[in-house]
Each structure stands twice: as structure tokens, then as C-alpha cells.
């Protein structure tokens, strides 16, 4: 009986400490030092929230750069992936049809090597990035769909250069581009 009471009290004590005080204290610090990040790195345009810098969005319109395939169509409730094994026929079919589709809409040579992040779906279904190579393969399509002149095309290429993120602190991760930020930027090209 004594053990039970000690257990209950200890449990109560640590619940208050690690379940209430600790997260509240972190929330306080976070809201004070990194308010923008702690609240989801939201992008605000014309007083309206149009997304988050960290969360990808679906782009099927021809005037926007396409993002990675997502099993959940970039609907985050809940996040998730296909979980198909590499010996799954369904995965192989999706892979082939994505390849065909990418070649078709971008009107590129059918033998072009397409970066694999464009053919495979992401783990979260919300991956905001693609590689620079994948972006460049889509440039001609965007230029055509938006009727850009040579000057505007150069601006577009500059945007791509600017938005290309090198590996973080020079040594972590992959080179990549945030598709949502890029598409926001090309909307501004006049």
C-alpha cells in the first residue's frame, strides 16, 4: 500500500513537471525567441495566410512548377506515404506513369534522366523541395505557359539561382529548391 502511494505521488509529481511545466516553459521560450518559427513559419501575403515555408503544396497547373508526388495530395490531415515496397507492382506502375506524365507535360526527350524525387512520393507527403535539376527541366514549359519573353525568362532563371538552397551550413543535406517559394516568386515576374 505504501508503495502504491509513493508511486502515485511520484507519478503525479513527474506529470506536473514533465507534462505541464516543461512544455509550457519551452513554449514560452520559443514564442519569445522564435515566434515566427514556433507558429509554423507561415507565409502571409496581402494579410492572408497562404501557406507555410516548410509545408509543400500541390501544383497541377501548367503555369506552376510541379512539386513531388504526394500520396496524400498535400493534405496534411494526416501526413503519410505510400509504404509500397520496391517489389510492389503498384509502385512500379505509379513510377512509370509519373515518368510518362512528366515527359509529356514538359515536352522533353523521352530519354532524359528525370531526377528520382519526381518519380517517387515523399515520406511525409508534404515535402516542399525538389532538386534544381528537376526545376530546370520544367523551365521551358513555364515560359511557354506564361508567354514569357526572353527578358522574363532570364529573370525566371535568376529566381531559380537565388532560391536554390545549398547544403545547410555547407555540410548537411542535399541541394534543393522550395517549390512554393519559387512559384510565389514567378507570380511576381512582370
Amino acid at each position: 500500500m505504501k508503495t502504491l502511494i509513493i508511486s502515485l505521488k511520484t507519478f503525479l509529481f513527474f506529470t506536473i513537471l514533465t507534462g505541464i511545466l516543461y512544455p509550457l516553459c519551452i513554449t514560452g521560450i520559443a514564442q519569445l525567441i522564435f515566434p515566427e518559427k514556433a507558429n509554423g513559419s507561415l507565409i502571409i501575403k496581402n494579410n492572408k495566410i497562404i501557406g507555410s515555408k516548410l509545408i509543400g503544396q500541390e501544383f497541377d497547373s501548367l503555369i506552376y512548377f510541379s512539386a513531388r508526388p504526394s500520396v496524400i495530395s498535400y493534405n496534411p490531415l494526416p501526413s503519410g506515404a505510400s509504404n509500397y515496397g520496391l517489389t510492389s507492382v503498384k509502385l512500379k506502375e505509379l513510377f512509370d506513369s509519373r515518368k510518362k506524365q512528366f515527359i509529356k507535360i514538359n515536352q522533353i526527350d523521352s530519354l532524359t534522366v528525370i531526377p528520382s524525387e519526381m518519380l517517387f512520393a515523399s515520406g511525409s507527403g508534404l515535402d516542399p523541395h525538389i532538386s534544381q535539376k528537376t526545376v530546370l527541366l520544367q523551365v521551358n514549359r513555364i515560359v511557354k505557359a506564361r508567354n514569357f519573353n526572353e527578358n522574363q525568362k532570364q529573370k525566371l532563371l535568376q529566381c531559380i539561382e537565388q532560391l536554390t538552397e545549398k547544403p545547410q551550413y555547407l555540410c548537411f543535406g542535399e541541394e534543393r529548391l522550395n517549390v512554393l517559394l519559387l512559384n510565389l516568386k514567378i507570380d511576381e515576374i512582370k
Binding site: S116, H129, E174
Partner: peptide, 15 residues
């Protein structure tokens, strides 16, 4: 099955 490309299914581009 998929050839010589990185197997990116279920992986994030940043990692």
C-alpha cells in the same frame, strides 16, 4: 526494377 537512380520512395528531398 527501377534502374540506377536513388531510391527516393518514402524519403524526403532535404535529407
Amino acid at each position: 526494377v527501377f534502374g540506377h537512380i536513388p531510391m527516393m520512395e518514402g524519403k524526403e528531398a532535404r535529407f
